[in-house]
């Protein structure tokens, strides 16, 4: 016994060093680009090309933020992003919840329907976006808010449906049955009993839908141009730059990542379900 105990104690003492190193390295890896971006965003332009680089700006400035938001139309992008992401989120959570409930409680369409929805999640966007572009140009939805809202609703639906599907599956159904016997129609049992009980799941699904829309680039790049452009597409303006716009790009990035990170960290309890479409409980 003492031998075992000693061996165990030795293991306890030696292993954490490797772990701490690995974790420390990884933390630095994650934080370093974020720090450098922040650093760049508040650094005066004069500090850009110094050797050695300026690690801590001594004279922080907000000029880059101002330029990014106004000169590069970052603010318009921000507003468009808000309108489009919020609308698509509401629609996606709403329609996703409706469908998920039907699949979970009535087994609608058997396995086929649910897997058909799931398969939509894995379609490469490039396969969809070309014809959607052509169709949108034909019906006048190109470069409109509505057009992108619809596209985003559809593209977040599979995740909403599957997250809520898993949520409803995990919920006992006796309360809805009690409501049915108590005199409710199916709709009332759903709306007055199931939905209030599923509210945390719906909020989580909505948060992930919002983050997906907020960070989406590809659809926005192709389906919008000068009117309904979103925040991520504003970064096109900084491509291939030669020095002048580092600060603006960094500032816009900081503005854009704050809301989604805040929401994501708040909803991290549901993260595993969100990432695996409900296949794994967190």
């Amino acid at each position: 016994m003492p031998v075992v105990a000693r061996a165990r104690r030795r293991k306890r003492r030696s292993v954490p060093i490797g772990r701490i190193l690995l974790l420390g390295f990884f933390l630095v890896f994650v934080l370093w680009p974020l720090y450098w971006m922040f650093n760049t965003s508040i650094k005066p332009s004069d500090d850009y090309l110094t050797v050695p680089p300026v690690w801590f700006p001594t004279a922080p400035t907000l000029v880059h933020y101002k330029a990014a938001l106004f000169a590069y139309r970052g603010l318009d992008g921000l507003i468009n992003s808000l309108i489009i992401s919020l609308s698509a989120t509401v629609l996606s959570a709403l329609f996703g919840t409706l469908m998920a409930y039907s699949l979970a409680r009535y087994n609608t369409g058997g396995q086929h329907l649910s897997f058909w929805v799931l398969s939509q999640r894995f379609l490469p966007p490039i396969g969809i976006v070309l014809p959607v572009f052509l169709i949108y140009r034909g019906v006048g939805l190109y470069d409109t808010h509505i057009g992108l809202i619809i596209a985003y609703t559809v593209f977040t639906l599979p995740v909403s449906v599957w997250m809520m599907f898993a949520y409803f599956r995990g919920m006992p159904k006796s309360m809805e049955e009690a409501a049915l016997v108590d005199g409710c129609t199916r709709w009332e049992a759903f709306w007055r009993v199931a939905v209030p009980l599923a509210a945390p799941g719906i909020v989580a699904a909505a948060v992930f839908a919002f983050i997906a829309c907020w960070t989406e680039f590809f659809f926005a790049l192709i389906l919008t141009s000068r009117t309904a452009f979103t925040l991520p597409t504003v970064f096109r303006a900084f491509i291939g730059f030669q020095g002048a716009q580092y600060g603006e790009a960094a500032a816009l990035a900081i503005v854009s990542l704050v809301p989604s990170i805040a929401l994501g960290v708040l909803a991290q309890r549901h993260l595993v379900r969100g990432l695996t479409l409900g296949a794994v409980r967190g």
């Binding site: 933390l27 450098w36 971006m37 090309l49 991520p232 790009a249 990035a253 991290q268």
Partner: peptide
């Protein structure tokens, strides 16, 4: 806290990720 930090990249637009690494890697800046 570490957990909250480690998951941050998941909530960032890939565009911004590209932008962040451009800032780090681009010559001469």
């Amino acid at each position: 806290v570490i957990m909250s930090i480690l998951i941050v990249p998941l909530f960032i637009s890939p565009v911004i990720v590209g932008q962040a690494w451009t800032l780090l890697l681009q010559r001469p800046f």
